[in-house]
Each structure stands twice: as C-alpha cells, then as structure tokens.
Design a protein around this nucleic acid. Sequence first.
DNA 1: ATTCATTTGTCCGTATGTATA
DNA 2: CTATACATACGGACAAATGAA
Lengths: 88, 88
Amino acid sequence: MDLPSGYTADSEIDDEGMDPVWLQLAAILVARIEAGRYPTGRAIPSLNQLRQEFGVARGTIVKATNYLAELGRVRAVHGRGVFVLPQD
Amino acid sequence: MDLPSGYTADSEIDDEGMDPVWLQLAAILVARIEAGRYPTGRAIPSLNQLRQEFGVARGTIVKATNYLAELGRVRAVHGRGVFVLPQD
DNA sequence: ATTCATTTGTCCGTATGTATA
DNA sequence: CTATACATACGGACAAATGAA
C-alpha cells in the first residue's frame, strides 16, 4: 500500500474519489507534517478534532494514523496523543 | 437527537434494544432527576458509581452526561461532580 | 507546602454491528 | 465475498481540578 500523491495540506476528503478515505487522510496529514504545520515532536490534532474537521469516523482516522505509524512518520502514545517523529 | 421515552428511574439498560446505551442511560438519569431521586443542586453519583451500577464503560457515561449538559439538565464541574440544575 | 484520594476530562486502541459498493 | 466506512461500546492510560489530611 503506497501513499497516494497529489494531496496537499489543504486538500479535502473526496468521498467519490478513487482513493479510500483513510488513505486520503493519511496523505493530507503527511503533507501537513512536511509543511511544518504539524511540527516534529508535537502531537497532531486529536481523533475528535480530526473527526470534526474532516467529518469522518473514529475508526477511519485510527486507520490513517496506524498507517502513518507503520511508515514511521508518527508514534501514537496511549492517553497522550499522536506525535510526529523526526525523519531518518 | 431526542430523549427516548418509556424509561423510568428503575429501568435497566437493555443492550439488545433499539436505543443506544448512552441514550438509555441519559433517559434513566432524567427520570431519576424528575423523580427527585437526584435533587436539584446536588451531584448525581460519580462516574465510578454509575459504572458499577449500570455496568457500562466510562466513555458511555460521559456521553450521557454530556448530552444532559447540552439539554441544560446538569452541569459537570471538574474534580467535583455532575450537578443537577434547576429547570427554567 | 506536599501528599493523597476522588472526580471529571481527554486521549488512543480495539472490537462489534450495520450498511454500502 | 471483500473492502470501506460509520456508530457504538469497552478498556486502559494520562491529565487536571478539587478538597482533605
């Protein structure tokens, strides 16, 4: 599973598009990380905040952040948040 | 989202029913408030006590009390409790 | 001033049921 | 039949406010 290209920090979720919502969300979050909008070492917005902003379900956001964790871009800490990791 | 009717102060949570658990709980709590079992100005039982009595998860109770707060029936005070408000 | 228990608030992880494509 | 997505629910962990010792 590869991160789709063509998504920016300000992209909106396209429910009709080819890419699954969770993968679009992952791509947008990476764009925001690389734009410095979510700085290294800091937490990205919480599940509830992302849920409000993008209007998607909890599970969908978890799926996106789990994927980013697999890619080594973030690390989720139970009870604290999802933190942006420095790149190798 | 409307409060479902048909729940009394002594109703039990029905996991198989039509209504979500958090909404059933909200309806039961309102019934207890209106029955005077939880008097105005006093705190309802704590999250842990409600958790024990009803056997539901923390988040479910918070969801119910948040809803009652939206309805103006209670006001939660951090570190103190959830207090029954006088009705307009 | 510190410690401790209690309580609410807020996180993420996971699982289940339902609906849809 | 599988993948996606949503709502619900449980669990565990961390944080902050309060009040009492």
